[in-house]
Design a protein around this nucleic acid. Structure first.
Length: 327
RNA sequence: AGGCCAGUAGCUCAAUUGGUAGAGUCCCGGUCUCCAAAACCGGUGGUUGGGGGUUCGAGUCCCUCCUGGCCUG
């Protein structure tokens, strides 16, 4: 698929202006849910000859359309979208699988002489695609064993073990964070190397592309109301029916916990009132938006805008792009 | 009108025999190398309904008023 072997020396192949040999250009659009990423992408793409490459953990699932605010078939007919509707919601999926697929998509778009427009709110997915990021191996059996040990109350001891064998990793992982402790031990066991040796600098990421990143942050208040409106619109658009349809078949762990789906599935099981579930969706979505912002805020590459959707915001994006092209 | 019960963080509730008012949730901030829309960590927030009294010390005991609920007429 990919065949790409460049990007290996992202440091400074050439310090002179215009001497950047990394593939590109690549434009990225990040920000919290409901910040208007999709709308802006659809405005930008036709003007730039761009194709959208999604960097979203939930848009990959077929049949999960309303709750993920997936671009509609009509929108996708106007602008090509990649990395959307990739797998069945029953299938296990992860960033590690996503990474090479997204990079291949970017390379293909570039190969066509078009501009890849990376759009997404999943911080880890975004970084995994755009930065030097190597995922250590995984093993289902090893992980299952560690998980059952933790479930049996072994977490404190496991954390001690990690602290003894890999102090640097332990320092970065909270003792109560079962998931991270398990993963760190899994990697140590599988590779014989400290987990910490795999970690790059998240605060000083090394792009593997000539990259321009635009960020949308409408502000807390606007986001709050937009999230509430969006959830209400989803309910009206038939979210409950979509969830009921999905519930007829087993869902993967990841797909099951998606915002909007988890709450409605729970309500369905318990026979709880729909409105209560929708309120929970709003709350959890707001919390998620906060986490998204926390993730992107520290990325120095992001050029932020607080403008609402409209001509001004579009002009801003085009200006930023022009400025980036000159650099 | 009389009797009983209850008023503690925005919300739901804790607080041994009177002894520094806590927890969950919400909200805000942070962490992050394959479950990431996940997982985890930290923080703001109270004249304990008002007023008076007893006491070294009152959310806790006494009096009174207010509010809500239930019962009786």
């Amino acid at each position: 698929m990919s065949g790409e072997t460049d990007g290996g020396q992202p440091g400074a192949p050439d310090a002179s202006p215009g001497g950047d040999r990394r593939p590109g250009p690549v434009l990225a659009l990040v920000g919290p849910t409901a910040s208007g990423k999709t709308a802006l992408a659809l405005e930008l793409a036709p003007r730039l000859g761009a194709e959208v490459v999604s960097a979203d953990a939930m848009l990959v699932y077929r049949g999960m359309d309303i709750g993920t605010a997936k671009p509609t078939p009509e929108e996708r007919a106007l602008v090509p979208h990649h990395l959307v509707d990739l797998v069945d919601p029953g299938e296990d999926f992860s960033v590690a699988r996503f990474q090479p697929l997204a990079r291949a998509a970017i390379d293909q778009v570039l190969g066509r002489g078009r501009l890849p427009l990376l759009v997404g709110g999943s911080g880890l997915y975004f970084h995994a695609v755009v930065d030097e990021f190597v995922f250590p191996p995984t093993d289902a059996a090893v992980r299952a064993r560690l998980e059952s040990e933790a479930a049996a109350g072994g977490l404190p001891a496991m954390y001690q073990r990690l602290a003894a064998g890999d102090p640097a990793a332990a320092a970065r992982i909270q003792p109560g964070n079962l998931r991270r402790v398990v993963r760190a031990l899994e990697v140590v066991e599988l590779t014989g190397r400290p987990f910490s040796s795999f970690r790059g600098a998240m605060d000083a990421p090394v792009s593997r592309y000539r990259l321009t990143v635009l960020g949308l942050d409408p502000g807390t208040e606007t986001l709050r109301t937009r999230v509430a409106e969006r959830v209400a619109a989803m309910a009206e658009a038939g979210l409950a029916e979509e969830v009921r349809r999905l519930a007829t078949r087993p869902l993967s762990r990841t797909a099951r916990q998606a915002l909007g789906y988890k709450e409605l599935l729970d309500a369905l099981e318990l026979g709880a009132p729909l409105q209560q579930a929708l309120d929970a969706v709003v709350r959890r979505t707001r919390a998620y938006a906060r986490r998204q912002l926390a993730w992107f805020r520290r990325d120095q590459r992001v050029r932020w805008s607080t403008l609402p959707p409209g001509q001004e915001r579009l002009d801003w994006a085009l200006r930023e792009l022009g400025a980036a092209a000159e650099r």
